[in-house]
Design a binder for these strands. Structure first.
Lengths: 358, 358
DNA sequence: CTGAAAGCGCTAACAG
DNA sequence: CTGTTAGCGCTTTCAG
């Protein structure tokens, strides 16, 4: 008894033509109700498995739902309900670092009952600063139950919803945070160079306004201090985390009267630029110059020669952030609000003992 | 006459305590209006830059908006408006392939005026098939203006909204599609092996139900046919795109009385498994065995030795999909509804001339 | 130039 | 067991 009503004007029914083609043919609960000959709220009850529906009605409505391919609109439901069971990951752009974090987050989300959606600010640098606040406002509390901010530039978000920051770019934030140990990592990288016998170690620094960059430079200095090697300030050149500017910095360093025998770059992109400049200048790596990067992005394994670098556990960052966020949403108290993960040294082919033309 | 009914129990109203603290303190348009002493619709006009607001009111409301940090809710706006200026990318999971596609999409979205959001089905394999339809229904027409489906298993989506599929897993779909040329790529990979002098070339095949796998096997056969080399059917082993099963297949192949001198794997993951098995068995690569993969996922550059493979332009897939979708949304007619991108051979260290113990 | 009112699609009381 | 009703936050006619 699907639809043999007699004298109604219900000319178009069944599958096809009732849906308009303009908007995109979304089937609404309204239409299901009409088609099934029940009220809209009954359909709602069926969709949500609420009690108070006769099994006969239930079956019938279910059949119509399936036939029409109806799904509740995420938007409408979100607007009505407090909870959405969706967690948002907000990134400035989909680039190597953030996508790695995303993979870790996807991993961690499994089995939690949450769904993951990722928003990209689209790399629009004009409105770069503040995107996190704007996006947060737009989705929190309606579309998502909580959010992970990846490399936010603003951390004083006075937002009281569940939010976790991954590798925030400025200062120790008031937000729960998970980041890699930039200081220890940088020390490790420079220690490695030092242990290889290098004494004139240059550094291509990162963007001065970002803590991660500051920490890496500090690690460079501390490693020197611990080894009793004085730092020659002229050996620090600003790379600003920008490939082009890093190239410039490398050129400066390698063009010195007494050039460094090793260079520590604030990130892999800068290290890769350094490698390029060395090649242009005919400086052999690692024979005449050792290079160490930071991050271990996938690309760094593909360079010539493959880059020795300090790896930060990008996926783990995402994983832990989700774990913290889920706990936060559940109303739990976090043991640690600022998690710091260890970095490791990945030895590839850009470093060699001083004077050893490997 | 806002609410001055006399003897009602309307005790709580106004600014503060009416908002629950649980949800997260979202500022609503309502609150802005109250604070600014104007109507809610005036705030709306200001937010959207509509005409019909005195510059004085405009400035005042703007000030309040900024002070309160108000942003319109994406959800509420979506519900009301037909357009959202958001494009959705739907992926089964965030894994190497899909994130590469995502990067390409992010690249292409710039300057289009659209924002990108990525949904992950969360890799829940129990409800794997059909996730694309479900998600599509849930977000299309409300949250997003169009969608890109990455590796959907269902392509007969009878959806009439703007949707583009990337590397669909089954059949030539009715949807506009962009995919790599699996046939040509496989031929190229096997041709390479053939040109190196190999005549007994094994293949670790992919999941038989996916077109990409079928095409790759067909390429293997066509390359043989073109070279006049007969295919020994016992040299094909099922790897099912699964690392473990691929390992099994490789074991079978390499354990034969007369083992192949080269193996073409249906994807990089399978090739990597093959490499592992070869190492376990003491078979030298490329000295005793040449291996070619398919995909060129980042991991393949890190294997020992680095894998020679057929690369498909993953980012380009995402890029082109977005371009097509944007055109579609704009109501344009697509010149080509099924775009096929070329693959390229990436020569690394797992192949060598037959008999050449390089 | 401004505000009141009607909904977008859905859920959750509350009546029948 | 079923339907009516009142909004979630917002945009948009349409009156004042």
């Amino acid at each position: 008894m699907t639809g043999d009503v007699e004298e109604n004007t219900v000319t178009q029914q069944g599958t096809g033509p009732s849906a308009p083609l303009g908007g995109g043919g979304r089937v609404t609960m309204q239409q299901v109700a009409l088609e099934a000959g029940v009220s809209i709220s009954t359909v709602s009850k069926v969709m949500n498995g609420r009690y108070g529906v006769s099994s006969q009605t239930f079956d019938h409505v279910t059949e119509v739902i399936n036939r029409l391919g109806y799904e509740t609109s995420l938007v409408a439901r979100s607007l009505r309900n407090a909870r959405t069971n969706v967690i948002g990951v907000l990134v400035a752009d989909f680039e190597p670092f953030s996508t790695e974090v995303l993979k870790g987050a996807a991993d961690a989300i499994r089995g939690t009952g949450y769904e993951l959606v990722a928003y990209s600010a689209g790399g629009r640098f004009d409105e770069h600063v503040g995107w996190e606040r704007r996006y947060l406002s737009r989705v929190m509390g309606t579309l998502v139950d909580g959010a992970v901010l990846v490399t936010p530039t603003v951390t004083d978000v006075q937002y009281d919803g569940p939010v976790v920051a991954v590798d925030p770019h400025t200062g120790r934030s008031s937000l729960p945070t998970v980041a890699a140990d930039n200081l220890q990592g940088a020390r490790m990288g420079v220690d490695h160079l030092l242990s290889l016998g290098h004494r004139r170690i240059g550094m291509v620094t990162g963007r001065a306004d970002l803590v991660s960059a500051q920490l890496r430079e500090r690690g460079y200095r501390e490693a020197h201090a611990a080894a009793g090697v004085p730092v020659d300030e002229s050996l620090l050149a600003d790379g600003a985390f920008d490939p082009e500017q890093a190239r410039e910095a490398a050129r400066t360093l390698l063009g010195m009267a007494e050039p460094p025998t090793a260079i520590f770059a604030a990130n892999d992109l800068s290290a890769l630029s350094t490698l390029e400049v060395a090649a242009e200048l005919g400086v052999e790596v690692p024979g005449q110059l050792s290079v160490v990067g930071f991050d271990n992005i996938p690309e760094s394994a593909l360079s010539h020669p493959p880059l020795t670098t300090v790896q930060q556990p990008m996926r783990q960052l995402g994983h832990d952030a989700i774990a913290m966020l889920v706990a936060l949403i559940a109303g739990e108290q976090l043991d640690e609000t600022h998690v710091t993960l260890d970095t490791t040294l990945v030895l590839r082919r850009t470093t060699a003992t001083l004077g050893d033309a490997s």
